[in-house]
Every structure is written in C-alpha cells, then in structure tokens.
Simulated scan of single mutants.
Amino acid sequence: MKKRLLLFFTMVFAAVLLISCGTENEDNDGGNAEGSDQTVENKGTIKLGVNNWADYIAVTNMWKVLLEEQGYEVELHQLEKGPVWTGLAQGDLDIAAQVWLPTMDEPYYNEYKDKVELKEIWYEDVGMGLTVPTYVDIDSLEQLNDHADSFDDRIVGIDAGASVMHLTKEAIEEYGLEYELIESSEPAMLSELEKAYENEELIVVTLWNPHWVFSDYDLKYLEDPKLVYGEGDDSYFATRVGFEDDHPEVVQWMNNWKMDDDSLGELMALGLELGDPLEAAKQWIEENRALVDEWMQ
C-alpha cells in the first residue's frame, strides 16, 4: 500500500506543479512568503525552468519559496530538458537548478555553453543507467541480449527529451541491444516498475539517483563496462548570460547551496507525502532553517 501511495503522489506531483505554475502570481502578496511578519521590497521577477522529474521539481519549488522570502516574484516554467536549455540560452529563463555534468547534460552543454553561465555544484555523485530489481539474475548490460525474451524485448523509459534517454539510445547501439526503448514519462515508468516488482516479473527501466524509488524498492544498476553512462555526474545550476550582473545576491546564495542524500531525500519524501511540492518546500525550509540560513548569506 505504501508503494501504491508513493506512486500515486508522484503522479499527482507533476499535476500540482502545473497548477502552481498557473496560479503562482494570483496568491503572491508582493513577494512576501506566507507567514512572513515583515514587508519585503519587491525585487523583480525571476523565471526558473523546471523539468518534470521529482528531484528537479522539489529543489525548484524550494528556491521559489526562498527567493520569494527575499522579495522576488518567482515564475516556474515546466519544460522538457531541451527547452529549458534553449530558454536559458535565449534569455527567456533565468535559472535552471539542475544541470548534470560531465555526462548526462553534455550534449546540451556543448551546444549552449557559450550562451549560458554554469555555476557551482550543489549535489555530488549523481548516478544514472539501466536498472532492474535485485531479484533479476543479471548484472551487466552485456547480458541483456541473452534474456531479451524474458524482458519482452523492451526497455521502459521516460520522456523522449531526457538525457538518460539519449544515453540509452547510445547504449543500445554500443552494446548491440535487441531491445525497443519505450518513450513514456517518469510516472508511467514508475507505474510499470511497481506492477512488475509486485509480481517479481523481469523489467528494465531508465533511472537515476537521487530518486526516492531506490529507498522503496530493492533495485540495482546494470554494470556499464563501456561507460556509456559515464562514471557519475555532479549537479550544478546554470543561469542565463548576464543574470549574475542583474542579481548578484541570488547567485551568491545559490553558490552556497549544498545538499546530500539525506537533505534532498527528506525534501522529496515530504513532497510525496503531502502531494504538493510547494507546501513541502515551505515545511522543509522551516524544519531546516539553520541549514538554509547558511546558504542565504
């Protein structure tokens, strides 16, 4: 039942984000955070791009709350990964809170690196790759073709524009995998994973960490001896060119920002529990005010 509830909240998560994006300015009271006891000068509007992944949604809503506490109005723009980069490069967005390098976002970074500004690392040792339940008796991408029939000749993926999908296409070619890569979404992939897991059926999916699903299911990455998925990424944030000149204090705060498995996991888990990433961000910030205050200096 816990797993079903978590998956349900994951699917609700994205829907709530869309609602909050559309209504954020309606309940903004001049830049004051809810419950603030002082008037804060309105410092203008900041536009954050956000990809429809649970971790990305969590930290972007967190920064929405923190920046609004400081007097900014914040707009969230839900987009796939490619359009987020394009928006930064064209100056239509101000910040992308999650950039994974050197591997996962490498194609976008190579295309746009002269038109965006890469800032500091806030989370280290991101992982990604093809993932199976631990009860599956294979350990490497090189073994997949020997069991293709058992996996129905398919890899269950997420949205087509995600970097992990591009890398999986490379992996299929590099390892000669006789599999079809299914394009879907994170919630749809998780739903299929849950169904297979409960019945101890074979399934292979595209996944990454940090992700709450690793704490709820016993899963393992398949070994990638050819390093198609790299040896691990770090998560940076990026801004449009000139944003630091316009808002140096914001970049300073975000350069101070650091999270680990525990802090990010707590934020994501709270979002799943509440079914509302904005309310989760507000509660998490209040529960971790000492940590947040270290960033906002």
Results as ranks from 00 to 15, higher is better:
Leu6Thr: 04
Phe13Thr: 03
Phe13Met: 14
Asn32Glu: 15
Glu34Met: 13
Asp37Leu: 15
Thr39Trp: 15
Thr39Met: 15
Thr39Asn: 11
Val40Asp: 04
Val40Glu: 02
Val40Pro: 03
Glu41Gly: 05
Gly44Asn: 12
Lys47Asp: 06
Asp55His: 12
Ile57Met: 06
Ile57Asp: 01
Ala58Asn: 07
Thr60Lys: 00
Met62Asn: 01
Val65Arg: 00
Glu75Asp: 15
Leu79Thr: 05
Gly87Asn: 06
Ala97His: 02
Gln98His: 15
Leu101Met: 11
Leu101Tyr: 01
Thr103Asn: 13
Asp105Arg: 02
Asp105Cys: 12
Glu106Ala: 11
Tyr109Val: 12
Lys119Asn: 13
Lys119Ala: 07
Gly127Asn: 13
Met128Lys: 05
Gly129Cys: 13
Gly129Ala: 11
Leu130Asp: 01
Val132Ser: 01
Val132Phe: 03
Pro133Trp: 05
Leu144Lys: 01
Ala148Ile: 09
Phe151Lys: 01
Arg154Trp: 06
Ile155Val: 11
Gly161His: 06
Gly161Arg: 08
Val164Thr: 14
Glu170Tyr: 12
Gly176Met: 12
Glu180His: 09
Leu181Asn: 03
Leu181Tyr: 07
Glu186Trp: 09
Ser191Arg: 13
Leu193Glu: 00
Glu194Val: 12
Lys195Gly: 05
Ile203Trp: 00
Trp208Asn: 04
Trp208Cys: 06
Asn209Gly: 09
Asp216Leu: 09
Leu219His: 07
Pro225Asp: 05
Pro225Ala: 02
Tyr229Cys: 03
Gly230Glu: 03
Phe237Gly: 00
Ala238His: 05
Ala238Gln: 02
Val241Ser: 10
Gly242Ala: 07
Phe243Ile: 11
Phe243His: 06
His247Glu: 13
Glu249Val: 14
Glu249Trp: 06
Glu249Asn: 14
Val250Met: 08
Trp253Glu: 08
Met254Lys: 08
Asn256Trp: 09
Asn256Met: 14
Lys282Phe: 07
Glu287Cys: 08
Ala290Gly: 06
Ala290Tyr: 06
Val292Asn: 00
Asp293Asn: 10
